[in-house]
Design a protein around this nucleic acid. Structure first.
Length: 302
DNA sequence: CGCTCCGCCTGGTTGC
DNA sequence: TGCAACCAGGCGGAGC
């Protein structure tokens, strides 16, 4: 399940591989993947003849800034007037963006293909590269944001996102304010993207373990110290995973199709019944707001 | 408004 | 061994 670290790794890979190449075509194999209100034809038509200036990440959303591809554009200063909207992608549960050769045999769950040429392939030359969206469980989505349109008007989920974990806005004081008088489990609050953008089930459980907080603790009952520990734990667990290239205890692949190397060493995630790596106590698994939740009853007393 | 639950999906695992 | 039921979960929307 791609969460913030995995999406960040994908973003970095895309920025290394996909920029400044002309989009020469595309193919949508599953219509549902293209988010409404746009038609598949308008989606592909809107990408045709464009190129990607850069990829950005907001929470778990990927955003590619597009410009009209033109061999005459050699200066970055000219990019601005040639901007041509955005391509948005959310991988949801099982989505993968892979940078492949167009002739590579189709993955079973290929949903969308975007073909790229380069300066050596003529204006309508055959594609030399492909950005392939593979998504087993089909929750993933792609958006085309037309020029001069507010991105969040099309990708409405962006409106509700809380602060980025690595932004100055995300600090213990922010969490204290956010958790004040809130009568729900901290685990549930961490999964809520309006609290923090980018945490998912794996890193929520891991961050709660690192901060010694029981997932069922109500937000309003967290102490100042606990909130400070949680704040640090969130940053630590996310940064560690980014540094390692994404997790392996999920089936995450980077854009080159390579698994990350977080080492498969989760403290608690998916380890119910196994001994805690700190105290040997058998780890427990419960349901919270419909999500499986893993914790150590000894290390996470508070 | 705050919170929980359901539905969307496919494939791997579990249970009879 | 075969088949059905269950489970995984991000997010939007329904419902209380």
């Amino acid at each position: 399940m791609p969460e913030l670290p995995e999406v960040e790794i994908v973003k970095r890979g895309l920025n290394q591989l996909t920029l400044n190449k002309k989009i020469v075509g595309g193919e949508v194999l599953l219509e549902r993947t293209v988010a409404h209100p746009i038609s598949v034809g308008d989606f592909l038509g809107g990408l045709q003849g464009k190129a990607i200036a850069g990829w950005h990440r907001r929470g778990k959303y990927l955003l590619a800034q597009l410009y009209k591809w033109d061999t005459k554009i050699l200066k970055l200063t000219q990019l601005k007037e040639n901007q041509d909207g955005w391509l948005g992608v959310h991988l949801r549960m099982t989505g993968q963006l892979l940078w492949v050769k167009p002739e590579e045999s189709l993955h079973k769950h290929t949903r969308v293909r975007i073909f790229f040429g380069d300066r050596s392939s003529g204006s309508e030359g055959h594609p030399t590269h492909e950005l392939r969206f593979v998504d087993q469980r089909t929750f993933g989505q792609m958006w085309r944001v037309p020029p001069a349109t507010e991105i969040s008007h099309i990708i409405t989920g962006l409106k509700k996102l809380g602060p980025e974990p690595f932004s100055p806005e995300f600090c213990p004081e922010y969490l204290t304010k956010k958790f004040d008088k809130r009568h729900r489990a901290i685990k549930t609050a961490l999964l809520d993207q309006t609290t923090i953008a980018g945490l998912g089930n794996i890193y929520a459980d891991e961050a709660l373990f690192l901060s010694g907080i029981r997932p069922t603790t109500l937000c309003k009952d967290l102490t100042e110290t606990q909130i400070e520990q949680l704040h640090l734990a969130i940053l630590k667990v996310l940064q560690n995973s980014i540094d390692a290239g994404g997790t392996t205890f999920s089936n995450f692949l980077n854009v080159k199709g390579v698994n990350g190397n977080y080492g498969g060493v989760a403290w608690v995630y998916n380890r119910a019944g196994q001994p805690c790596r700190i105290c040997d106590t058998s780890l427990e698994k419960i349901k919270l707001a419909g999500r499986s939740t893993h914790f150590c009853p000894q290390c996470q007393e508070g």
